[in-house]
Amino acid sequence: MLEIKDLYVSYGMMEVLHGISVDVQDKELVSIIGPNGAGKTTLIKTVMGLVKPTSGQILYNGEDITNIPAYKRAGMGIGYVPEGRRVFGKLTVEENLQMGAYELKDKAQIAKNIEMVYGIFPRLGERAKQLASTMSGGEQQMLAIGRALMLNPQMLLIDEVSMGLMPIMVNTCFEVIKKLNDEGITVLVVEQNANKALKIADRGYVLETGNIVLSDTAENMRKDDTVQKAYLGG
């Protein structure tokens, strides 16, 4: 479904991704793990069109999207949950969800999708008219996921969902991600919390200083000595 081919990305003079290739099959849940600063967020941003690669290709459903501007990618079926949540703090919960459905013209459909998100996260329904900035980190993370679901995406890109959350919220978020995947949404997770990320994944990649150093099924990775030492705490 998503194919990243030999991707190079630089910020100014500094190259941060040195020829990355990652592929995600239809209905798969793939996790990319790696330490802070490895280039995980850059990789996701490049897929979303927020960072321009210096070379390489991004194929989505076989179509080359490398040079399509970010705002035209929204309607293609990729939902994005950014690092640090980045909900629109000055908009209400409901307005945030409306922004997630910006590409939709049909008001009834938008209302239906908002109800669907409230069904997944009842908390958001209770806070519909509240400004997003006044909510807790966990609630904001739910909103960020909800916003990404507003266009009924085929695929979700999820960047550091566990960052800055209480352990109980981290578990809730991973459960929701797993459930969405079971319902047929393809998911690519980028995560420092390797333990959780590999537990729910079908396959995994390890990204270190801009290179993919390992890729395998999630099960094998959990058993792998070096992965255990470096990322799973022994």
């Binding site: 705002y71 980045r86 922004m99 590409e103």
Partner: peptide, 8 residues
């Protein structure tokens, strides 16, 4: 940036 991703 996020507005862009939403399609604006």
């Amino acid at each position: 940036e996020i507005a862009k991703v939403c399609g604006v």
